[in-house]
């Protein structure tokens, strides 16, 4: 079976019509559904948070059958994910798309679990530490997109689980957990 990074590709990835946006409504709905799942699965396994429509994205082309998605199809599939609440457009021109393979609420839970598992309940960390520090290595928090991380932290702050404060250096923020 074909693989793309860690992801095992489904057999229909070699089906040429899969790469042409189908005009018939019922067929198109099924096709969009399959693409949504595949894009989210791929982003999850590859830890990809941002998909640029004008950049090369390995999933959007299949060299084995010499097919790739055109711009219209890419927009259609990503828009479908956006309307499901699993992604957001990052600009008005719909050129970059933020993929939330975990919802913000799920990310918040993952952060809480990470805090508890590492005994960080009352400690202080910088945001950058969380993303690339030794503690987070091997967890989902490691390598998280900064935008996504900040939004998850804001959610937790509103719940009173932590406090975000401006650090001494201007380019980083600190987090005080109080779980």
């Amino acid at each position: 079976m074909q693989k793309l990074g860690e992801l095992k590709l489904p057999p229909f990835f070699n089906y040429p019509p899969y790469f042409t946006l189908q005009p018939v409504r019922e067929t198109r709905e099924k096709q969009i559904q399959l693409w949504k799942e595949l894009i989210l699965d791929y982003c999850r396994t590859q830890k990809i948070f941002v998909v640029g429509l004008e950049e090369d994205f390995p999933l959007f082309s299949n060299p084995a059958i010499e097919r790739s998605l055109n711009h219209e199809a890419r927009v259609a599939f990503l828009s479908a994910i956006v309307s499901d609440g699993r992604a957001e457009w990052m600009d008005k021109g719909h050129r970059r798309c933020l993929i939330l393979w975990h919802r913000i609420q799920d990310w918040a839970d993952i952060i809480l679990r990470f805090v508890k598992e590492n005994g960080l309940e009352d400690s202080v960390m910088t945001v950058e530490e969380m993303r690339s520090g030794i503690e987070s290595r091997g967890t989902d928090v490691h390598g998280m997109d900064r935008t996504v991380l900040m939004r998850a932290l804001k959610l937790l702050e509103n719940k009173g689980k932590l406090a975000i404060f401006k650090g001494t250096s201007t380019d980083d923020e600190g987090v005080k957990f109080s779980v």
Binding site: P17, F19, T20, Q22, P23, V24, E26, T27, K30, R67
Partner: peptide, 10 residues
Amino acid sequence: GMGFLCRDVS
């Protein structure tokens, strides 16, 4: 309906 054909434009 859900036709038995699909197109491939390449």
